[in-house]
Design a protein around this nucleic acid. Structure first.
Lengths: 335, 335
DNA sequence: ATAATGAGTGCAAACGATAGCACGGAGGTA
DNA sequence: TACCTCCGTGCTATCGTTTGCACTCATTAT
């Protein structure tokens, strides 16, 4: 009942193959037939059947997107939504569709991937997070299936496609900004050391200190959880041993906890910075300076990287996205 | 290169059709062959090619999801993420995939739909919002293509599949709770009257008053925008004419504005409630009572409704989701 | 005039599944 | 023993495109 390539062919008085070639803009089709076919397509309101096309081409022009379901905190912040928007923006431009799926745990993720790949639904996969020894990554590597991850892989980082923030630079900027304002005794509260981001951000902190010829005090560095409570405790612990004049953190949640601790200790002149620029940061009092990680750009570049690497291997295989330090009240006190 | 139905057939010593029938669990296949085929499938790690299957079946087992891109406020709140989770949960259970797309404006939405439908990519569509005279709805109705909307359509509500909150009941519960606490003079601040939700919630407010034999004062009802500023001004306006002892609102943003106004006027004993239970509500001081609209359930039921109506028409064609009033500090002051 | 060239098309075989129809043979009835 | 059923399968067309190969003419070189 729906209009197919044959109907168009009949109307234009050519064979289906010719119509197909017109669609594909094949070089050796005469302008005359091209016009006739185009006209027929218009008249019949013809749209190619994407399924049939996929079957013939062995390519669906569809990307799979795996979203974690477990992490309540992360779901609350708009990170994933922004990533998805970015992905969608590029994909649409490139003529790709996006299939998404939430998965509760790693096992289910792998199962989902297995299904998606074997059923031939997706040309490539986007992973929005990466763990240590990520089983999804292993699986995809084993299957030789194209994929990109958002975050930096621990192993085989040069073979895998990935995009990430320039976390080291990001923290460097934060610390530099504080130093420029006159702060010297700057503490660092991070998430667990196992997470690559923590280590990269710590490196940026160290680099900035070095650049300004400030000593690095390992005892001013605390690494705990990504929670408000951890931030609170870490701040108390830091000040129990030393009187600092600024604290940088690797996450807004941590900063919230630290802010609470500072308030309780009456240290209202200590500068404080968060990370990831969650909405709540600007609702705190004082408002908390934070780092915008440009989630939408991460998504956009991830999609771009994957798609450009689909057919042929491109030489560009990863992408570092610059962050932006958003200065608010919390980093402008003291000094 | 990948294993197809023919390989399985060859290995099991049967014809491809038989394998196909085994997959479809066709009744008249002997247990013996069924076992042999199953064994072969296992051995070869066979997975049906979903594309080929879709072509033959004229069905992709895929749903399209349209997400608005314009509304910054809405994107900030986790509503859409939760809806997507709900959709994904049911879809996965039912063996469906979800294709999503962000669109900037109505025109682009319709274009996207047109493409999605004509290219035969999706069996059905989920719309996450609905406007007055929604062109997407018109389009889908005209094409006779299955779809479900989240929200209540103004026209043809009985023909269209939709899920929505029971907004009237929701506001009824809020007001009832306030009355039970002893409040009598309760003001109402809503969004624009054009929005169906505003009207439904107002109705719930009126019903509750009636139920408790309280008079309805039209002058205690203000309908403005869904903004903090509008809430602030509305609260000032209400108190300029009358001294109320509680205010209910149809959105947290409005409540934030109202809270600010109340603070400035020193009316700390006036109870206040929000709606939609955004994260910020629990970060305000005092924390704001709000209504959880169960976004995930909305998504889940939308997917369910659509999928169960795909082949045959089911008799169930809409679904009202109950909300939950989350009591916090703001509604427990006074009286 | 004849042969070689090449541009513009059509034929037909994939792509990997589904399903209507037909057919062989086992079991039951006359 | 001859005929009818009906169960379990295979054959084959079909879903709508793509694409390698071959074919037809007109054109140009010899």
């Amino acid at each position: 009942m729906p209009v197919t390539i044959k109907d168009v062919a009949k109307m234009a008085g050519v064979s289906p193959s010719t119509v197909s070639r017109v669609i594909a803009d094949h070089p050796k089709i005469s302008q005359a037939t091209k016009d006739r076919v185009t006209e027929a397509m218009e008249a019949l309101q013809y749209r190619p059947n994407a399924i049939a096309r996929s079957l013939a081409n062995q390519s669906t022009k569809t990307l799979g997107l795996l979203l974690p379901n477990n992490d309540e905190d992360l779901l609350q912040n708009p990170f994933y939504v922004q990533v998805m928007r970015g992905i969608s923006r590029y994909a649409q431009k490139a003529g790709y569709y996006i299939l998404y799926s939430y998965t509760d745990h790693e096992e289910q993720e792998v199962k989902m991937l297995d299904e998606l790949l074997h059923s031939k639904w997706v040309d490539g996969v986007i992973l929005t997070t990466i763990r240590e020894n990520d089983r999804c990554v292993e699986f995809l590597r084993a299957k030789q299936h194209p994929f990109v991850v958002i975050g930096t892989p621990e192993d085989h980082a040069d073979e895998i496609l990935w995009v990430d923030n320039n976390n080291s630079n990001a923290m460097y900027d934060v610390v530099a900004s504080l130093v420029e304002k006159g702060h010297r005794r700057i503490g660092f509260i991070g998430g667990p050391h196992e997470f690559a981001v923590t280590r990269y951000r710590l490196r940026g902190y160290q680099k900035a200190l070095a650049h300004y010829d400030l000593p690095y005090h390992p005892e001013w560095v605390v690494e705990k959880d990504y929670t408000e409570k951890a931030g609170y405790e870490a701040a108390l612990a830091l000040f129990a041993q030393e009187d600092l004049d600024a604290i940088v953190t690797t996450d807004d949640l941590i900063a919230f906890g630290a802010q609470k601790a500072l308030k309780e200790m009456g240290k209202t002149q200590v500068a404080l910075t968060g990370f990831n620029n969650t909405i709540l940061a600007e609702y705190k009092s004082p408002t908390i300076s934070s780092v915008d990680i440009k989630a939408e750009a991460l998504g956009y570049e991830a999609a771009k990287l994957l798609i450009t690497n689909l057919g042929k291997q491109s030489e560009v295989r990863h992408c570092l996205i610059d962050t932006e330090f958003i200065e608010r009240e919390s980093s402008c006190v003291g000094k």
